[in-house]
Design a protein around this nucleic acid. Structure first.
Lengths: 205, 205
DNA sequence: ACTTTTCTGTTGCATTTGCAACATTTTTTG
DNA sequence: CAAAAAATGTTGCAAATGCAACAGAAAAGT
């Protein structure tokens, strides 16, 4: 299914959707407690951000093409402010959950296609979340690294993998201290579990 | 929306659904790589289980009433066997993703109601997953406990919370060693962050 | 009511981890 | 191209954590 087809056919006839562009650094949306907004990132990259009680910037989630986000997916209280900020130029589709949930009068084909499409995106999101939970559930950095590498390896059908992001970001994804992770990577190499050439990693098990 | 209404109206006219009962200990379903099954737990409790390479039982997820699961939500490879086992007597609704995704000929109301209902369940699931990720992302047991308690507190609009499961299960949910968690709970009490009476915990911050 | 299982609570110890601080290399940007 | 910013790599050290092992309390099963 092509989202671009859907958008052009459905908008503005049946669902109130907005397609907006944002430049790097711009705030795409703030999460509001009572609203139920859904956003689909058509292109670009963005971060879900919170400033904690001490004022530290906290990146909660990173979004790229075809990711779906918005307060509908995230628990929002009145006492924590969450917002999504573009880290690259972005194109975003914005609408409200109730506008797609409540059927249009015509019970039109595009409307139900849109719901199916959204369901598909959400399911893909679930799988990603479950993968992350599985990794975060591991008790040691070594186990986290190994299960992350294994998953990448089986996805790419190869014992040699190239990391999709920097080691700094990997440490964030695994939610561990970067220097401790570097130490563990070295130790994995020393113990003969992996070999590393630049950003390519070869699994030896 | 009442799922029971939906089931009685939709079945067996448009979507191939099965409503099955399982007794405690029975296997509800095994996750298969190519299939896309969706299950809705109508009543009872069940665990998503894997046996790791050493044969250790690994509880990946715990389901209760109105939880939605199945291989559609979880990354499945051919080399790891996942299955869902009833820990209490269960009633489960089973169907295939393609059977609801592909619209029925009649484009019937029940069909699209079902999709909306599933979307709602999936969104609830997403919020739970995001909550868990947020907690697992914390670096220390203390932070994990405090953020878990805070979330429970804001959900229940009260500084006094009662844990929804045993301390043993809480340690699993936080993915930390139980004895280390007990030590940290004691230390939180000593430092005046919380007070504890049986399974009730009072936040003092 | 008795037995068995699960849960709670505790401790010592070795290991892992986060933290801070730094030098070097690579990448980005004006 | 030069300057600034980000990423990589490394280390010492204190603190946090997992692990193992145990005893008593509570809950569940027969």
């Amino acid at each position: 299914m092509q989202i671009s087809n859907l958008i052009e056919n459905i908008y503005p006839n049946c669902v109130k959707m907005q397609k907006k562009s944002f430049v790097k650094g711009q705030v795409i949306t703030s999460y509001m407690a009572k609203r139920k907004q859904i956003c689909i990132l058509l292109s670009g990259k963005a971060d879900l951000i919170r400033y904690d009680s001490k004022g530290n910037k906290d990146i909660i989630e990173r979004f790229s093409s075809n990711d779906i986000f918005g307060e509908t997916f995230y628990p929002v209280n009145t006492n924590n402010e969450l917002f999504v900020s573009a880290t690259e130029n972005c194109e975003v589709l914005l609408f409200l959950y109730e506008d797609i949930h409540t059927k249009c009068k015509a019970n039109c084909k595009f409307h139900s296609d849109l719901i199916s499409y959204i369901l598909e995106l959400v399911l893909a999101h679930c799988i990603q979340q479950n993968t992350r939970i599985e990794i975060l559930s591991k008790r040691t950095i070594r186990e986290k690294l190994l299960s992350y590498f294994s998953i990448l390896s089986s996805k790419g059908f190869s014992k040699t993998i190239s990391l999709p992001f920097s080691l700094t970001n990997l440490a964030d994804y695994l939610s561990v201290d970067r220097s401790a992770m570097m130490r563990e990577i070295k130790s994995l190499i020393d113990d003969g579990f992996i070999a590393k050439e630049g950003s390519k990693i070869k699994l030896l098990f």
